[in-house]
Design a binder for these strands. Structure first.
Lengths: 402, 402
DNA sequence: GCTATTTCGTCATGCCGATTTACAAATTAG
DNA sequence: CTAATTTGTAAATCGGCATGACGAAATAGC
C-alpha cells in the first residue's frame, strides 16, 4: 500500500496502473473523479462529454464512486436550459482525508485535507528540534497526528494515508531519512516510529513544497523549478507535472552548483558552491550576525528594519542564486522559477538582484521568477495533498476502506 | 501522421495512445513487437509468458503483426526440451524502414534502418554547407534520400518515415529550423523543401545523438546526460528513457551555463559561459590555431601528434566542462554522463581533467563519465532509429501502408 | 517401439468494459 | 397542452482478453 501511494504521487491519473481492462476501468474512475473535482459540480452527462465516454459508462463509474464514498449527489441542478436537468455531482466532503505532517527545525505541524482540497483540521507545536533524537520528536508528532485524525473523524472523514515532510534527504523507499543535518538525524527509519495503521510516505520538504506549488499555486505551469532553502539550498525540478527525482533521489541539489569555481572550500569537497554565497549560514556571516534559533526570522526582521549590511548580504545572495539558476534554466528550459518555503519571506530583497543576474545572462526573454503564494506552509500542504492526489489518481485502491 | 510520429518518439511503447479498448490492443501489439525484437526469435508461448498475456491473445496479436508485414515466422524451433517445439517469430527484415538524414556543416548523410536495427542502405556526400542557403542543400539531400529509398526498396523494404538531424535549434513543430548558426539558416521550414510523401520529423542533432546512445549504446542507463559539441556545446537530458525538451524545446543549452561569472563577455549577454572555455572556437584560439574547415579533425590530429599547446587547451576545456557538469549532475542526479558526437574523438585529452574536476567537486562517488561508442554517426543513426521506434511503439499506425 | 508426458498453437466459450439503442422522466418553447 | 430537448438508465451488442479443451509435435520412460 505504501509503495503504490508513493509511485502514484508523481504521476498523473493512474499512470502506473496495469494495461488491462481492469486497469482501464480504474483509470476511468480516476478521470471521472478528477473531472468532477476540478470543474465544480457536474451532471453525469457533463462529465461524459468532457472525458469522451458515454453517459451510460459514466453512470456505472459514478455509481461505484458514490458507493465508495468519494462522490456525492447534490440533487437536481437548477434548470436554466431546455431538457431534463441533471443531477449535480460533487466530490465528497465526508470521504477520505490526507494527513500531512511536517518536522521542522523549530516546530511540528500536522493537518488533514479532504478530497475537495480544504484543510479540515490542523495542529502546530512550536519547539526547537535541532539535535533532538528522533524518538521523542516523533512521539510528539504521533500525538499531534492522533489529535488531527480524531478531529477529522469528528467531521466524518477517515484518514487515507500519512505523508511526512522532513528537512533532509530521504531514500527512495519513502520511509528512511538518509541525512537531515539540521535535525542531526542519520539513517532513521521513520516507519518504525510513526502510526503503523496508516500508509506512510516520507519525503524531502523541498519536494513537497514544489508539489504544493504545482497543485495549489495560481497558474503554476507543469514545468518549473522550485527553489527553497532549508538544508542548504534545495531545488525541485518539476517536468511535465511530475517531480524529477534522479537516480538516487538526490536531484535538485542546487546548493552545490559551482558559482565561483575558485571560491572558498565547501564541505562537499568543491569550491565556491552556491551554498557559500546564498546559504543560511553564509548570509548570516556576510551580514555580521550570530546564528540564533530563528535564523530566517532574524534576517527578515533586520532587512525590513532597513539594516543595510543585511540587505547587502541578501542582494549578494540573490546574485549568486541568479548565476546558479542561469545554469539550471539553460539546462532545463523551464516555464518559470518559483521561490518557495522560507525563501518567500526574503524575496523582496533577493529578487531584484536575482532577476537582474538572470536577465543579464540570458539572450532573449529571461525565464520569469515568481514567489510562491503558499509561503512557509507549502511543504505541509504538499504532504497532505499528496495523499489526496493518490486517492484521486487511483480511487479503486482505497474504495471500501472507510 | 507527422505529429503522432513525433509524439510517439519520446515516449515508451504507445504511451500516448488513447485509453480505450482499441488503445489497449495497440499497446499490446507494441509490447509483442518489442519483446520479439529485443529478445531474439521467440515462440508465441514465450512471448505470452514474458508479457503476461495468454497464448491465445498473443496468437491473434501475432497474426495481425504478420499480416502487416512486421513479424515473420521463421519456422519450427529446434527442439531441445520436451513438448512440441514452438514456431520461431522474428521481426521482419522486409517491412518498414526508417530513413534518417543528417545535415552537417561539411557533409550530408542519409541511411535506411530496418525494424531489426540493421542499417540497410546509406549515402554520404562530402561538401561544405556553411553559409549555403537551404534550397540547394536540401535539394541535394532530397536526391540522396531518393537514392537510399530506392536502394532500400530494392531489398524489399518500404520507407515508413523520414527524420532529419540538423545542427541547430528546431521548433516544437518538428519541421522548422529556428536557428542554425553554423549553417546560417533562420526560421526555415524544412517540410516545404523535402519529399512530401514521407512523414517528416526534424530535430537537433544533439537530441538524436542522445537517443542513439539510449537505444544503441551498450548498457546505457535510462537517465543520463549526453554532451555533444557542434553548435557551441549541446547537451541532451534523458530522463526515464525519454528526452527532456523544455517548454520551448531549448533544454540542454549547456554552452551558456556560467563557469566563471566574471569571465569574458559572451554573445548571449552573459559572462564566462562554458562556450568560452570549451567551445570549438575558444579551444582553437587557446591552442593558437586558425579555424579551418575541419576544425575537430585538426584538433584531434594535433593532439595525437603530441602538440602540447593543443593538449593544454583541451585539458582546460575538460576542466571547464567538469565545472559545468558538476552543476548539471547536482541538479539532475543522472546515472551517468556520456560524451558523444564530435567530442568522442577528443575524449582522450578531455576526459582526465573533466573527471578530476567532477570528482573533486562531488561528495561521495562521482557520477561516471563515459564516451559514446557511436562516435560521429550517432545523430544519423538516432534519426533513422527514431522512425523505427515510432513503428515499434505503435505498429497499428503503419499497418497496411506497405 | 509404444505409451505417457509435456509443451505449443488454436478453437469455442465466457467475462468484462464500453458503446449503441431505446425509453421514461423532467424540463423549456410555443 | 403539446413538441422539443436533455438526462439517466436498461437491454442488447461489440471488442478484447481469459479460460478450458483439443489436436499436434516433441521428449521420457518402459
Amino acid at each position: 500500500m505504501t509503495a503504490p501511494l508513493h509511485e502514484a504521487r508523481t504521476a498523473g491519473p493512474g499512470r502506473a496502473l496495469p494495461d488491462t481492462q481492469q486497469g482501464m476501468r480504474r483509470r476511468n474512475l480516476a478521470r471521472v473523479l478528477h473531472t468532477v473535482r476540478d470543474e465544480g459540480p457536474l451532471s453525469r452527462a457533463a462529465v461524459a462529454s468532457r472525458i469522451g465516454l458515454t453517459r451510460a459508462a459514466v453512470s456505472t463509474l459514478v455509481d461505484e464512486l458514490i458507493r465508495s464514498g468519494l462522490l456525492e449527489e447534490l440533487g437536481p441542478e437548477r434548470p436554466g436550459r431546455v431538457g431534463r436537468p441533471g443531477s449535480a455531482l460533487a466530490v465528497s466532503a465526508h470521504g477520505p482525508a490526507g494527513i500531512g505532517a511536517e518536522v521542522g527545525v523549530d516546530h511540528l505541524a500536522v493537518c488533514a485535507v479532504d478530497l475537495r482540497g480544504a484543510t479540515r483540521a490542523r495542529a502546530i507545536r512550536q519547539g526547537a528540534n535541532r539535535g533532538r533524537s528522533p524518538q521523542p520528536v516523533l512521539a510528539e508528532l504521533t500525538e499531534l497526528i492522533r489529535q488531527v485524525v480524531a478531529e477529522a473523524e469528528g467531521e466524518g472523514l477517515w484518514p487515507a494515508g500519512l505523508a511526512v515532510a522532513v528537512p533532509g534527504l530521504v531514500a527512495r523507499d519513502a520511509r528512511t531519512v538518509v541525512r537531515a543535518p539540521n535535525l542531526g538525524w542519520h539513517e532513521t527509519d521513520l516507519g518504525a516510529l510513526l502510526p503503523a495503521d496508516l500508509p506512510l510516505t516520507v519525503d524531502n520538504e523541498a519536494n513537497f513544497g514544489a508539489l504544493a506549488e504545482l497543485w495549489l499555486g495560481d497558474d503554476t505551469p507543469r514545468d518549473f523549478l522550485h527553489v527553497s532553502a532549508e538544508i542548504g539550498i534545495g531545488a525541485a525540478v518539476v517536468v511535465d507535472g511530475g517531480l524529477l527525482r534522479g537516480t538516487r533521489g538526490f536531484a535538485g541539489e542546487l546548493g552545490h552548483v559551482p558559482v565561483r569555481p575558485d571560491g572558498p572550500e565547501c564541505a562537499c569537497g568543491g569550491r565556491g558552491c552556491l551554498e557559500q554565497y546564498a546559504g543560511e549560514e553564509a548570509v548570516l556571516r556576510a551580514a555580521g550576525l550570530e546564528p540564533d534559533e530563528d535564523r530566517v526570522g532574524l534576517l527578515t526582521g533586520r532587512a525590513a528594519e532597513g539594516d543595510e549590511s543585511v540587505r547587502r548580504a541578501l542582494r549578494d545572495a540573490g546574485t549568486a542564486l541568479g548565476v546558479a539558476l542561469t545554469g539550471a534554466v539553460n539546462l532545463l528550459d523551464p516555464q518559470s522559477v518559483v521561490l518557495g518555503g522560507e525563501l518567500s519571506g526574503l524575496a523582496p530583497w533577493l529578487l531584484p538582484s536575482l532577476r537582474d543576474e538572470l536577465a543579464r545572462r540570458t539572450a532573449g526573454p529571461a525565464c520569469p521568477v515568481s514567489v510562491s503564494g503558499l509561503g512557509p506552509q507549502g511543504p505541509l500542504l504538499g504532504a497532505a495533498h499528496s495523499v489526496v492526489r493518490a486517492v484521486l489518481d487511483d480511487p479503486a485502491a482505497v474504495a471500501g476502506q472507510a
